[in-house]
Design a protein around this nucleic acid. Structure first.
Lengths: 231, 231
DNA sequence: TGATTTATTTTGACTAATCAAAATACCGGC
DNA sequence: GCCGGTATTTTGATTAGTCAAAATAAATCA
């Protein structure tokens, strides 16, 4: 009985799901080896812990471990990871669009819920929300079939000066940053242009489309905001 | 800073939450001592495990352990347990009323979710659902303030013969029983009467109000269906 | 009362996940 | 080609939660 979708057969603990999810986020393509230190940092465990866990995951056939070089997902591991990520982002979308929660809070909430919801609830949530392509932060939601449709975008730090652009994604999920972004109206969908960049000062000046309101932003912050040409 | 509601300050693992929740279900009044064996059976662990865990919970001040006699919740433990039960039943309600899930499936689903949702999500879910008093099985939902409004009802096995009654609650949450009940239209709200009881045979005959359709039911099953006088 | 059954507790061992710190491998520079 | 620094792996210990089975207490019954 062949199945083409990405429903998870494997029973993974939430720890396992977290390791796989972070491996996916650290190497979306699935090709590049993730250094053990990077994985450990992402999971906020000491490197030794990550090594131990990765070896166990390798035994399960969920990751490929190249000792001293790094680790990457197997196709099976990737399948599980995509399903977790899909849950995370659909839950975020639900929390913002249905429960009207603050978008700065939903990340941590989804971090718990992604391990608790079944595939059936996932599907129904997806339908209820109208099969969204991205979550409230603009992050792409993996399809049921496990396709992660993730594009390369310019950022406010790299886009053309004085061209009108639209924000498509905020890549920093921390409540602090999201709160800051919201307060300045910097959300997916917002149209604006970079009026000026002062590299030595690490600052840039923004101008909202159809308004004379200006705001300035650090280069670091700007690099976390992905944009596409408007219109 | 005095707080009157039942929001949980204590950080309990889901194991701890399950022990407390089952203690509440086994002794709703909070007075009666629950024998260790009963608790262990409810949690599907061996008795020794329950003893160990209960001693730990007693150290935390969440339960009172009377060795060899049994265990009961402290006010603090009860507060936490009520909050978990509230989550469980509101989640069930959400799954049935919003996601349109089969009511036979939602119990197991809620079993996971009750440990993953925050108090804020809980409150928003409650508001979204219009502050329901009972879940889809008719089980009372504890209030935010920790009041569990649970009445004593007759069952189909004990109610007056030939009196019209309305189903208010199904006390067996197993998918099998719920599926069976649904197939026979035995859900909270349904009005019917017991046409006949045959005690030696352990059977009873039901008649739906406003219909000549009859059904028969075992006494055991009937005892799981709580009713109140209709109208 | 004393023997037997039953419930509970204790003991010892196991698994998953973690950390601290020691051991090891690899890299770049000279 | 060696030396020092950095990343990784290994080792030993810890915590939460569990089970199996032995020990103990209480209840029942003759």
């Amino acid at each position: 009985m062949r199945r083409s979708d990405a429903s998870a057969q494997i029973v993974a603990t939430s720890t396992v799901e977290n390791y796989l999810k972070h491996l996916l986020l650290l190497a979306e393509d699935g090709e590049t080896l993730v250094p053990m230190g990077a994985l450990a940092a992402a999971l906020e465990v000491v490197p030794g812990t990550a090594t131990t866990m990765v070896k166990a995951l390798a035994d399960e056939g969920l990751v490929l471990h190249r000792p001293r070089l790094g680790v990457r997902l197997t196709p099976e591991g990737r399948r599980v990871a995509l399903n977790v990520l899909r849950k995370h982002r659909l839950v975020e979308t639900f929390l913002v669009h249905v429960l009207k929660m603050d978008w700065a809070k939903v990340h941590d909430e989804a971090e718990q819920l992604e391990h608790a919801i079944s595939d059936e609830v996932l599907d129904r949530l997806d339908a209820l929300l109208g099969h969204p392509q991205t979550d409230p932060h603009g992050d792409p939601i993996p399809s049921r079939q496990g396709k992660l449709h993730s594009q390369v975008y310019a950022t406010l730090a790299t886009c053309t000066l004085d061209r009108s652009v639209r924000i498509v994604r905020i890549t920093d999920q921390s409540p602090e940053f999201l709160q800051f972004a919201e307060q300045h109206g910097l959300q997916p969908g917002t149209a604006l242009r970079v009026a000026d960049r002062n590299l030595p000062a690490g600052l840039l000046a923004l101008r909202r489309s159809g308004s004379s309101a200006a705001a300035s932003l650090s280069l670091v912050a700007a690099g976390k905001i992905l944009v596409e040409p408007a219109r």
